[in-house]
């Protein structure tokens, strides 16, 4: 193994990543950096995996052949993303089986938006369009992550997410130009999803106090991501005649969006396992994880 230029000293390592240095799987890294990477990336992988479930329920109900194919492909991509991301976690030292055990036992977390029910076909459009739009903002910022293997897979993930957003927007456009009841389906879904979407990027933490930013795992603050989401998508939502359920929402003259403070108690409660669908979805995962264990054992027994 050729000598690495990654310094084997915590302070020097920190300087290295802060000046734009990249770290590979085989490089030395401080324990704290590794632990933070694992926790963050594992939650990302868990979110992709749990993100499969809300939309998967609608694969069997897609109303045309084209929608069926697109929705299946979208959910398939989420499973594919989970595979890519768990692989990164595995290389950092945590085996996938353990990640999955921690997930189904409720020890590990996943993103707030995947704890909610998908009630109607309107949700399918709103999730693919807006949840994926919120996600792609975080993921694009991860292209600059100091941990290079993670940054590299993000390229493929972002490329695939851009199809998801378009698929979602297309579903929404079909509904808002359909019957009045179909328009209402989207409005009603948006009303339910807006709160979770505003919580999605997390509390406003100053970037220089966020350890994830300090280690250059993230390059974007939470509020910055939320502002980017609002700036990009509020006009796109409003031009369809949809109303955003926040009376305080407005763009100031300096370009900053003001909004009603998101319900942080709800966020905390949901991500710690008390969301409306948390228990059911984890039980569903557990069922298949256990049911198909023999297959993994048979396949791996070469």
């Amino acid at each position: 193994m050729p000598a690495s230029e990654v310094p084997r000293d915590e302070q020097a390592f920190l300087d290295y990543v802060q000046s734009g240095g990249k770290v590979e799987a085989t490089d030395w890294m401080p324990d704290e950096y590794r632990a933070r990477l694992i926790k963050f990336i594992e939650m990302h992988a868990n979110s992709e995996l749990m993100g499969v479930l809300p939309e998967r329920e609608w694969i069997l109900r897609a109303p045309t052949l084209q929608r069926k194919l697109a929705l299946t492909a979208k959910v398939q991509d989420e499973a594919g993303h989970a595979q890519l991301i768990y692989r990164v976690v595995e290389d950092l030292g945590k085996p996938r089986e353990r990640c999955l055990e921690d997930l189904v036992s409720g020890k590990a977390k996943f993103h707030n938006v995947f704890h909610y029910p998908t009630r109607t076909w309107g949700d399918v459009g709103v999730i693919a369009w807006l949840v994926d739009a919120a996600a792609i903002i975080s993921q694009k910022a991860l292209l600059k992550c100091s941990y290079a293997p993670y940054a590299r897979i993000m390229k493929k993930i972002c490329w695939e997410e851009s199809f998801h957003i378009l698929h979602g927007r297309d579903v929404v456009l079909a509904l808002v130009t359909g019957t009045p009841a179909q328009f209402e389906l989207v409005q009603e879904a948006l009303n339910r999803w807006w709160g979770p979407l505003m919580q999605f990027h997390g509390h406003t933490i100053p970037a220089d106090e966020d350890p994830m930013v300090i280690w250059r795992i993230k390059s974007q603050g939470n509020e910055e991501a939320r502002q980017q989401f609002l700036e990009g998508y509020v006009p796109q939502i409003r031009e369809l005649g949809l109303e955003i359920p926040d009376p305080k929402l407005r763009r100031r003259e300096d370009g900053v969006w003001e909004y009603t403070e998101p319900d942080w108690d709800e966020l905390r409660s949901v991500v710690t396992g008390h969301g409306p669908k948390t228990a059911e979805r984890l039980a569903f995962r557990r069922r298949f994880l256990e049911q198909e264990r023999w297959v993994r054992e048979a396949v791996l027994a070469a």
Binding site: Q66, S162, F163, L166, D170, V176, T177, L240, L242
Partner: peptide, 23 residues
């Protein structure tokens, strides 16, 4: 193409949606 961005053309529907919404 259903898996790709170039498989979607939203122009016509977007125009229609904007007209309906008066935007």
């Amino acid at each position: 193409k259903y898996r790709r961005v170039d498989g979607y053309s939203i122009k016509t529907r977007l125009k229609e949606a904007r007209e309906r919404a008066g935007t």
